[in-house]
């Protein structure tokens, strides 16, 4: 069962299945990849926004923690990691 990263539960690791690179600018896409966010990698959503809004989203990628906006997470398709 796949879902979108912006709707994923906090604290649960998922694997990135597909990213719609056409939905973002070239610079944004490159920065995502520089953060290590690309097809096949595992991420864990950690924190989401504050009382002001549901933006942004903090993720663990490997040993890094990165922040992206929900809009970007909405084009990242993820799947559960097989037990």
């Amino acid at each position: 069962m796949t879902g979108l990263l912006d709707k994923s539960a906090l604290g649960v690791a998922v694997r990135i299945k597909r990213i719609d690179w056409t939905a973002m600018s070239e610079d944004e896409g490159r920065r995502l990849r520089e953060f290590g966010l690309m097809e096949g990698c595992e991420v864990t959503p950690r924190h989401r926004g504050s009382i002001f809004s549901r933006d942004p989203l903090a993720l663990s990628v490997g040993r890094m923690q990165v922040i992206i906006r929900a809009k970007q997470a909405a084009v990242i398709e993820v799947e559960p990691i097989a037990a």
Partner: peptide, 9 residues
């Protein structure tokens, strides 16, 4: 355009 926000913590 609405801007993005990407940064490392």
């Amino acid at each position: 355009n609405a801007t993005g926000f990407m940064m490392e913590m």
